[in-house]
Structure formats: C-alpha cells, structure tokens
C-alpha cells in the first residue's frame, strides 16, 4: 500500500476529521447565505431607489466590496479592526462578517439587476388595470424578478461555499485546512498524499455544491 495515498484517509481519524472540517465549511456557508440573501434583497431594493443620496451610498458600498479582494476584506475585519479600534472579533465572526458583507453586496446587485430588467410596460399595464403600487410590486413585478434572479442567486450561493476556503488564512480549521494538515503530517511517508487528499476535498465540495445546483434546476423548471 506504499503508493496508495488514499490509505491515509483511513489512518487514525483522518476521514472523520475531514468530515468535521466539511461541517465547519457548511456551517459557515449556511449562516452566511441565510443572512446575506435577505439582506441582499433589501439592499437590492434600496439600490433601485431614485434618490441621489441612496444612489451614492449604494454605489459606494458596491464598489468598495467589488474592488476589495475578499481576502483583504477578511484581513481587515480580523486584524485591521483589532488594530484600529481594539475590537477583537473572533476568527469565526470575522469570517461570517466577510462573507455577509460580500454576499450582501453581490446579492444586492443581482436583485437590482433583476428588478430593473422588468420592462416599463409591465408597470404601466398594471397601473392601467388599476392596481396599487403595492399590488403591482407583489403580484406583477416580484414573481418575474424571482424567476430572473434564481439562476444567478444559486450561482452566488455556490460561490460563497467555495469562498469559505480562504478562511484558513485566519486560522479556521475547515475542510481545506484539515486536508493540508493531513497532507503535511504524512508528506514524508506518502509523498503523493497531496493528490489524493485534494482529490477527496474536490469531491466533498462537489457533494455540497451539486445538490444546490440540482435544486436550482428543479426550481427553474417548475417556474417555467
């Protein structure tokens, strides 16, 4: 078995540790997605406001998050904030905050895009039928928006799951870091460990993201 790096998986509690790591990844993703989606919807609606102040604010927030690499944002939240204000956010809190800030901005832009893509005549037709503004939004605009929003939103969810991997750099031991620890501890006996372990991690990420995109497909089909 000297050559088979896969046997490392079954040494000690390695596989269990990888699964525990995966659970950390999942937890981070679930919390961040659950918070980002509603916040993002609210932010997206805010972005469509015509008021100049609202436009400037939303533009600033969006550009700030867009320009800033997620890793830099993470370091600012974890180390920068501690330097500047003395707020010691835990690694976990910083990671969630980073994902939420980024996820909200991205989701907001998707919602904005979906909202303004609804043609003007939809509003006008609704008005012609005597619907109130509230009715127009809830019964005409919203269903069409959701339909357009679904594919990019699901895409964002899988991107968020994958982005959780950068939290290893502030010491959170999730699936990737666990994998690296296993690779390193066995590097000497099993030089090919990297290939196998990264392969397994790839498969684990796939296991998480695949159901999400399956769900998206089903939802889309149902809507059409």
């Amino acid at each position: 078995m000297q050559d088979s790096g896969l046997s490392i998986l079954f040494m000690g509690s390695n596989f269990l540790r990888l699964l525990q790591g995966l659970w950390v990844t999942l937890q981070l993703s679930l919390i961040s997605v659950a918070v980002s989606l509603p916040l993002g919807i609210a932010f997206g609606m805010f972005m469509t406001l015509k008021h100049p102040a609202a436009r400037i604010i939303s533009r600033l927030i969006l550009d700030f998050v867009r320009i800033m690499p997620q890793l830099v944002l993470l370091f600012i939240l974890y180390f920068g904030v501690a330097h500047a204000f003395g707020w010691n956010l835990s690694a976990y809190a910083s990671a969630v905050a980073m994902l939420v800030i980024w996820g909200t901005a991205e989701m907001g832009d998707l919602v904005r895009g979906a909202l303004i893509s609804i043609p003007r005549h939809q509003y006008e037709s609704a008005a012609a039928l005597g619907m109130t503004g509230r009715q127009t939004f809830l019964e005409v605009i919203l269903p069409q928006t959701v339909q357009r929003l679904l594919p990019p939103a699901i895409n964002l969810v899988t991107r968020m799951i994958k982005t959780t991997s950068i939290v290893v750099l502030i010491g959170i031991v999730e699936v990737l870091k666990t994998g690296q620890q296993i690779i390193d501890a066995n590097r000497l006996q099993f030089p090919s460990a990297a290939l196998w372990i990264y392969g397994v991690i790839f498969f684990l990420y796939f296991l998480v993201c695949w159901p999400v995109s399956l769900l998206a497909k089903r939802l889309e089909r149902r809507m059409n």
């Binding site: 000690g12 690296q180 620890q181 296993i182 390193d184 501890a185």
Partner: peptide, 13 residues
Amino acid sequence: SDKAPFGYVDDKG
C-alpha cells in the same frame, strides 16, 4: 499546524 516536525496535527487530530 502544517509544518512537521515543529508544529503539525497527527492522524488523531
């Protein structure tokens, strides 16, 4: 946690 033999994690975690 990934720099054997100075600091690493064994297969028991």
